[in-house]
Write a protein that binds this DNA or RNA. Structure first.
Lengths: 122, 122
DNA sequence: GCAATCTATAACTCTGGCGTTATAGATGCA
DNA sequence: TGCATCTATAACGCCAGAGTTATAGATTGC
């Protein structure tokens, strides 16, 4: 699942914020989200699963609770995904200011989009 | 619509890439996406509308075509949205290395999540 | 052992979003 | 004027995914 697909849900975004603040038991963050969004525990549990399977969270057992924490590795992927857009954007913005710095010639940055989107090749 | 909701769709991500490379007529990028994803022109038109209404793209008329281009303003919002996570993440990562720099005391960074998520307050 | 707690899963429903076809509006051109 | 082109909208169908209730599995404490 693409990192940006995962973040395309307010409940998951909120969960990430909570666990980024500090690692904690599932039920703790879950309680907050259940109240804030008015949804049930199983609903939150499934979001936790998605976040875990997509690499955003790690989980470890501790007694009968499960401690979740953000996974630094996910930061890389998210940043990477966004960096692509930022790079493209900046190229575009640079082009607008080309009158000043004309030393560059963009060259073969884009050779037409053939048949499949680049999407999954970081 | 939240910037990250907008990006939670591969067709829209692809469109952004195409327009970031260079501004162009709707039909031009649309043709590419129609072929790559096997969807119709009206389907792409709706994605373009979403991207425009959420501030990612601007549009101007030129003859009977519509020229779309990425809007620099959207970059700010997207970066802002991601920066929140990066900040929180980094705090977390810093905390892991606290043994070295212990001068800081996190203090009132998080005073429990009362009733509503911060989500929309950049 | 038994009850309580914590989390996850199963089975199911329902809705929002994405798709489609048909068509309207606007512009260009013979 | 009449027809082709370009883009957007209308009206509708379908399905992935997010929600629900019920319940299982694991651990703790009495």
């Amino acid at each position: 699942m693409h990192a940006l697909d995962v973040l395309g849900d307010p409940v998951r975004r909120r969960l990430l914020e909570l666990f980024a603040a500090r690692e904690q038991a599932a039920g703790e963050a879950s309680g907050v989200v259940e109240r804030e969004f008015g949804i049930s525990q199983p609903a939150v549990a499934r979001h936790l699963r998605v976040l875990r399977e997509s690499g955003f969270l790690t989980r470890r057992a501790e007694g009968r609770t499960r401690i979740y924490a953000v996974d630094p590795a996910a930061l890389d992927e998210l940043e990477g995904a966004v960096a692509r857009y930022r790079t493209l954007w900046n190229q575009r913005l640079d082009a607008l200011g080309t009158e000043i710095a004309r030393g560059k010639h963009a060259a073969s940055t884009h050779s037409a989009a053939s048949t499949r989107p680049p999407e999954e090749q970081p």
